[in-house]
Design a protein around this nucleic acid. Structure first.
Lengths: 138, 138
DNA sequence: GTGTTTGCAAAGTGTTTGCAATTTA
DNA sequence: TAAATTGCAAACACTTTGCAAACAC
């Protein structure tokens, strides 16, 4: 978690990304407050609220650049929406189908029993578990 | 697996769906050849090849109606593309990120170690494991 | 005949792209 | 100043919708 501007700038430099006003602002929103799960649109809204002027196209570019640099990971839970996760360690997710909220499953609470044998000619890249939850009706 | 026309028609009737020419044709493509994973567009292409005249809008409608009736399940592996699976039993998937192919993981080859405790106010709806694979480079 | 279903084309959603203007170093 | 980055608007891929014509019963 980077919290100072100097630290954010250093992080971006190390990732080979110029610390532009937009990137620094978005990095602050993303990495300044613990683990986060955001869509491009949500992040754009937060940036606006925070007074960071940035276009949606740049938010997308930035999220992909951060992913490429290993600062973010992408999570697939829904067609038509991309989520980005500041937790780049291997872990799993709860997805609330009613609200669209994505949350980490605490470490160790779930895992896979064994790795399956991948189809011929392929190798395993990533294993993800998504636990879909909904409002508990009573 | 339904293979006869009479069987397909009966299946649709039981699901509360009128056995229209389009629904019967698509059901044959879907349920007449073992477990399948298709996108709307793929199915549309197959229908065309098979000489079944059906619009893309109707393919979408039909896939959703079949899902609603429990004849299909929907699988989420990629933003911007919906996959439908003729296997409605609880099971998991391989997703080839290079080709877009989706395949079932044989029963028992993978499972979860334990169910995590869902966030307050929610209940678990579904647990899915997606194993992303890619061409094995040598 | 009556209500359901279909197909078209238009609209919608989320994302990406091309390129001139701006910014970083 | 040179190269990288941004923002806009247009383009995109996939999906959904509105509604008149066609179909199932």
């Amino acid at each position: 978690m980077t919290r100072t501007y100097a630290g954010t700038i250093e992080m971006l430099r190390q990732a080979g990304l110029r610390p532009t006003r937009q990137r620094v602002g978005l990095a602050h929103l993303l990495f300044g407050q613990g683990d986060r799960h955001v869509t491009a649109d949500q992040l754009r809204g937060e940036a606006e609220t925070a007074g960071i002027k940035v276009s949606l196209a740049t938010v997308y570019n930035t999220l992909h650049q951060f992913s490429g640099a290993g600062l973010l990971s992408e999570v697939f839970v829904e067609p038509g929406r991309s989520y980005f996760d500041t937790n780049t360690a291997s872990h799993h997710h709860f997805f609330n189908v009613d609200t669209g909220d994505l949350a980490d499953i605490p470490d160790g609470e779930v895992g896979v029993t064994a790795l399956p044998v991948p189809p011929a000619g392929t190798a395993i890249d990533d294993v993800s578990i998504v636990v879909r939850v909904r409002k508990h009706q009573r």
